[in-house]
Design a binder for these strands. Sequence first.
DNA 1: CGCTTGCTTCGAGTGCGCTCGAAGGTCCTA
DNA 2: TAGGACCTTCGAGCGCACTCGAAGCAAGCG
Lengths: 156, 156
Amino acid sequence: MTVIESTPAATRTIDVCAAPPPRHPRPDGQDHYTISEVAAWTGLTAHTLRWYERIGLMPHVDRSATGQRRFTNRDLDWLSLVGKLRLTGMSVAAMVRYAELVREGDHTFDERRALLEATRRDVLARITELHETLAVLDYKIDFYAGARPASERTAR
Amino acid sequence: MTVIESTPAATRTIDVCAAPPPRHPRPDGQDHYTISEVAAWTGLTAHTLRWYERIGLMPHVDRSATGQRRFTNRDLDWLSLVGKLRLTGMSVAAMVRYAELVREGDHTFDERRALLEATRRDVLARITELHETLAVLDYKIDFYAGARPASERTAR
DNA sequence: CGCTTGCTTCGAGTGCGCTCGAAGGTCCTA
DNA sequence: TAGGACCTTCGAGCGCACTCGAAGCAAGCG
């Protein structure tokens, strides 16, 4: 059992632009990662990575001559995308759908774009909700900051 | 990242709710709702409302002379808060903890504030994550919008 | 009077997203 | 030759947040 690398993938700093994919441990050309390397890098378990592949959440994973998975930088990028989409609350099923579209080839570009745009709308809605929640939170924090314990009224 | 600068106004109106107080179906004084009214209003089921109470997620619910629940505007506000906190991903356990603090009385003000501030930080972090995701999404949408189906590069 | 709505307790089921273990195998390196 | 990392399939388990039904009873209304 490999000890899990304690530095999570999230430690990749700055690189605000999502455009260029996050830095990779190895440059393109030498990007052949074993499952445990990917597990360390992503924070997922090998079990989960295999599960992702099994349910169709990985577009494709290369194999070595002896049948072992060889992940590439592209797979890392995909996993990073999946991680982000997960954070938006997107269901695994929807991500699998997207992966299917990728596998199906270029003629699904429009559908992919539509799916991403729908997701984008969801994310925006979510951000709006969170801002509303933030307003409530701020209001309450303000209340608690300003109130003396023996306040005349009880707050919830 | 746009963070709403919330100036909760020095309006020491001391009530539970956020700046825009959610309209109540009935004014204070006539606010006695049955469980099914609350279910209709919140979208939760009566089952779930009873469950909330059972696990300690409602600070307190009044009863009629015959033992039926009589929810008040305050309860509605509380449920609205719970709904918002749920959206932030806060666990039920954490919300129960907050409800406990409320039940314990005024001497828990500081702890409540601390809990809310921690939640606030979580929400901000979440918003940041979502903005990052948005950037990725925009990048990809852009790619799909600009690419012709027979593009020379394959996108995931 | 009957119907609806509510109450209680109990306990089982659901869907999601993992998470893990076992069994039995291959391959590589020290 | 031993150990470890990997492979496969199968299937069970888990934590969360509900979700539902059933049984049996009380109250309110039209």
